[in-house]
Amino acid sequence: MAHKKKGSQTVVFEKKPYIIGRGNIGGKKESEGPLAACFDQLLDDDMFGEKSWEKAECKMLQTAMERAIHRAKLKKENIDIMLSGDLINQIMTSSFAARDLHIPFLGLYGACSTMTESLVIGSMLIDGGFAQNIMASASSHFCTAERQFRMPVEHGNQRPTSAQWTATAAGAVVLSEKPFSIPEGMRVVRATDATIGKVIDAGIKDANQMGAAMAPSAVDTLLNHLQDTGRAIDYYDLVLTGDLGFIGKDIMTDLLIDAGLNAEKVYAHYDDCGTMLFSKDQDVHGGGSGCGCSAAVFTGKIMQQMEQGKISRILLMSTGALLSTISSFQGESIPGIAHAIALEVE
């Protein structure tokens, strides 16, 4: 009997795992954005002293992880399992980071929903008693994503108004069964429950309309989460989607109000990481996207605000577009997914 399952898609964590460490890193464009102050480290050059974009992304992910381990006052030997994913074929960044770090590794692919996916699975592993300390992380890099999914970086073209900008960023957290190593005066963040999303395909085929492709899955996960837990949207100080961007956020808001949620509450309690990471005048068109977008915003601004007690309850919903380079060429539409994890300050 699955006694930790609630409703149709939600799980409740009895142990309520603690987030005892966090780390993030951002690229050049992120350093020019409104959240620059919320990064542990920012790069002047997105190559990060490496020979290829892929190596640079790998180094960024490792740096974020090491920062998280350091903040948790642990050694990498204390991490039982590392959960990580990215956008490059065969999740190269995460696997190669795991090769260098020598931590037992489970690779994940949830496209841009990976940060929440790793947090959800990590919390489950701790709650099930399979691990004490878990590393949950995700990364993306504008140039690695651009050359894999679109065009060579130096190719000259005009981006459509709905195109989003893949964040060059990585974020990592250490989840733990016990709250040791939390500094005095700092609030502790715990994971309470999570809703696992279904893959929803609204039939969008345009790879430059990611926000619109993912919004229906985010709406579905949120409505199911609220129904399973019996909560209203204003139970949370902030409901945060991963990378719907400016267009997807508007669609999500409209669909939520259409589904019967109170409009004022939706406007007051809902936001999107893709609209926070960059400002509109940074020429990012539809806003930020990529695994690193929600990973960096959550491990930066959001965690800071929670630790300082400015906000106490959030629902993090990283959103992913599960297309591949093959599926778009074969004329398939873009399936979307969104997972949700509820986090609260103790």
Partner: peptide
């Protein structure tokens, strides 16, 4: 039916997209 829904959603999403 799926095609029709996809088309309708595409039109709906277009309303939110700024024109070039």
């Amino acid at each position: 039916k799926k095609k029709e829904i996809a088309k309708a959603y595409g039109r709906y999403a277009k309303q939110f997209t700024p024109r070039p």
